Simulated scan of single mutants.
Amino acid sequence: MDPRGPGSLLTPDAMGGAAIPATGRAVVAVGVKPGQFPPELVAGSPVTVVVTAATAAGTSSTTAQGQGPGTSWRATVVGVSPAGTDQTTVVSLDVDATGGSQLAQVPSGQLALVMQPAGGR
């Protein structure tokens, strides 16, 4: 039985570690440059990840597994790491396991993140 009574405050020691990713989910990191994501993006933001047309010369506009421009996945932002010297921001996304595998194969620079309303579609 829990020694804390009803109405007791929980301390950080009383909580277990977060189970990320949950069963059937994956966390995938994507690198995005300014203009490919809203600067207001924070952990917990619901997003749609969209494959865009290739912008680099000589790069095919069709990605691995046939995920071409317009392909999209629903995800939740887990974390945002600020841009480094190459101006790439790394965004960690919680997606379904299949989507995580597909996203990991999309070439850098071919994704855009679109913020969605919380709880909305």
Rank of each mutant, 00 (worst) to 15 (best):
M1S: 05
M1K: 00
D2I: 00
P3W: 00
P3A: 02
P3E: 00
R4I: 03
G5A: 11
G5R: 07
P6C: 11
P6S: 13
P6T: 05
P6V: 05
G7D: 06
G7E: 04
S8T: 06
S8P: 02
L9W: 08
L10C: 02
L10A: 12
L10T: 04
T11I: 05
T11E: 12
T11Y: 10
P12E: 06
P12G: 03
P12M: 04
D13H: 11
D13L: 14
D13P: 07
D13R: 13
D13N: 13
A14I: 00
M15W: 07
G16C: 05
G17H: 14
G17S: 14
G17M: 12
G17R: 14
A19C: 07
I20C: 06
I20R: 13
P21H: 10
T23V: 12
G24E: 09
G24C: 09
A26M: 03
V28N: 09
V28L: 11
V28Y: 03
V28S: 08
A29C: 14
V30R: 13
V30K: 12
G31I: 08
G31Q: 13
V32C: 10
K33C: 15
G35L: 12
G35Y: 13
Q36D: 15
Q36N: 15
P38A: 15
P39G: 15
P39K: 14
G44D: 10
G44N: 11
T48N: 09
T48W: 04
V49R: 03
V50W: 04
V50A: 04
V51W: 02
T52W: 07
A53M: 04
A54W: 05
A54H: 05
A54D: 06
T55K: 06
A56M: 02
G58D: 04
T62V: 11
Q65C: 07
Q65S: 11
G66M: 01
G66C: 01
G66Y: 01
G68V: 02
G68T: 06
G68M: 01
P69K: 03
G70W: 01
S72C: 00
S72N: 00
W73T: 01
W73K: 03
W73S: 02
W73I: 04
A75Q: 00
T76P: 00
G79F: 01
V80D: 03
S81L: 08
P82F: 02
A83E: 05
A83T: 03
G84P: 02
T85Y: 04
T85H: 02
T88A: 15
T89Q: 01
V91K: 08
S92N: 10
D94I: 10
V95A: 14
D96H: 12
D96G: 10
D96W: 08
A97K: 13
T98F: 13
G99K: 03
G99R: 06
S101F: 09
S101M: 07
Q102S: 08
L103V: 06
A104C: 15
P107Y: 12
G109K: 05
G109V: 08
Q110H: 10
L113W: 07
V114M: 08
M115D: 14
M115Y: 06
Q116H: 07
P117M: 10
P117N: 10
P117K: 10
G119H: 14
G120E: 10
G120M: 11
R121A: 15
R121E: 13
R121I: 14
